[in-house]
Amino acid sequence: MKLKSLTLAAVMIGGVAYAAEVAPTEVAFDEYGAVEASLTGKPGDPAAGAMVVGSKSAGNCVACHAVSALSDIPFHGEVGPTLDGAGDRWSEAELRGLMVNAKKTFDGTVMPAFYKTDGFTRPGDGYTGKAAGADLPPLLSAEQIEDVVAFLVTLKEE
């Protein structure tokens, strides 16, 4: 009896916070690495996405990519191609796939997988150098991924 109500409560908590959210282990890719369905079931917010792309403590995408739309943020990297025009080169589904796990699109790429929680070698607890706990969260949440996708779609060639 007690057990049952506990399980029920857990389901309800899950239900409230993560309405139709797709878990990192359940994302469906097509054969080219694209992900059709929104991870949250709703469109993202491009302004919030821009913050994730530029912020060191979030996506830190500018560590590797230059983005002219974010030229007020100092120090853009050169490890990946510039993201200018990414919204012309890729569909929304392809961009989502690149965000979830770019290795499904580019075999062996150095770009990290932002919505993945297993299959790592010696995963750490953030940047502490210590071992990760059992439930390693993805680098970005489903909502953050959708926000970034919404931002990338806006990056058109002039």
């Binding site: 590797c64 120090f75 853009h76 990297g77 050169e78 490890v79 150095v110 990290p112 070698t121 995963p123």
Partner: peptide, 25 residues
């Protein structure tokens, strides 16, 4: 050449494939 951690980067990812490039600053 082993890609460690949640970022899945090896020494080679940065120091063989990308030397000469900026990574942030």
């Amino acid at each position: 050449y082993t890609r460690y951690g949640q970022l899945e980067l090896s020494c080679a990812s940065c120091h063989e494939l990308n030397y000469g490039n900026m990574i942030r600053a």
